[in-house]
């Protein structure tokens, strides 16, 4: 089987400082990869390099495109990369405000990607928007409300609906549950797990919350100071950490 995403030797430097270096992994269709590490460990830099928001200084990000098979997205032309960014890829930001248009209604937010790929039938777009609101557990009657009138958890779910409406194959998530209270987090995780399984999505999730990766991720990468210090199956890494830093990380989780 061809990996959906092959990452080879990604390096990003900020001047002489290391953002991340020597990162490589394969991601297969339907697989969810978690990236954990403390603040400043380079996990968000890595995610932004993979998603094409930052240009890495070295390395390859090879994506298995529908039309042409595996292609290095870093050498793609910008229109192609941006097209990928709104069809086969999705990016869920930590803060819903970064991923939503706050002055546009929920329906318009969900419809934007559809219209960007050429949908020109208002009725169809609206039906799909209402359908997706339902899937992320937002009442269909809120379709004309602006995200500013939504709670934090609803905004995050709206952002997910907006991203998944074009049926992407790979989703990047940057701390999707950050800043939400625990009960809302639990429901969001439940929803995400359902959607990932149901749509057969591949996902790369960056988080510092080990519980999130325990629930969602099949595989785990632990980052420290821009390097990957340990990787493997999620349960294996969390239950039997080998690297000193991973041991510290796992033992630092508060037990309730």
């Amino acid at each position: 089987m061809t990996p959906l995403l092959q990452v080879k030797g990604i390096e990003k430097r900020y001047g002489t400082r290391i953002g991340c270096t020597g990162v490589g992994f394969d991601l297969y269709p339907g697989e969810v990869m978690g990236i954990v590490g403390e603040s400043g460990s380079g996990k968000s830099t890595l995610l932004n390099c993979l998603a094409g928001h930052l240009e890495p200084d070295a390395g390859q990000v090879i994506f298995d495109t529908r039309a042409n098979g595996p292609v290095d997205t870093l050498t793609m032309s910008e229109p192609e990369r941006r097209m990928l960014g709104r069809t086969d890829w999705a990016f869920v930001h930590q803060h819903a405000r970064d991923g939503l248009r706050m002055s546009v209604s929920a329906g318009g937010n969900i419809g934007e990607r559809l219209m960007a790929v050429g949908d020109r039938h208002y009725g169809d777009i609206r039906d799909k928007a209402i359908d997706w609101l339902g899937r992320v557990e937002i009442d269909g009657t809120r379709v004309d409300d602006r995200p500013t009138a939504f709670s934090g958890g609803m905004q995050q779910r709206l952002q997910i609906a907006r991203n998944l409406v074009t049926g992407p194959r790979l989703v990047f998530m940057d701390e999707p549950t950050g800043g939400l209270d625990v009960s809302v987090q639990a429901r969001l995780l439940d929803l995400l797990r359902g959607l990932v399984r149901e749509m057969g999505l591949s996902a790369i999730i960056v988080t510092h919350d080990l519980a999130v990766v325990r629930l969602l991720a099949d595989r785990l990468m632990v980052m420290k100071d821009g390097h990957v210090v340990e990787s493997g199956l999620t349960d294996q890494v969390l239950d039997d950490p080998q690297h000193a830093y991973t041991q510290l990380l796992v033992s630092s989780v508060l037990q309730v």
């Binding site: 329906g107 934007e112 219209m115 960007a116 777009i125």
Partner: peptide, 8 residues
């Protein structure tokens, strides 16, 4: 696509 969001 954004132009159509306005019309939507």
């Amino acid at each position: 696509g954004l132009m159509h969001v306005k019309l939507y």
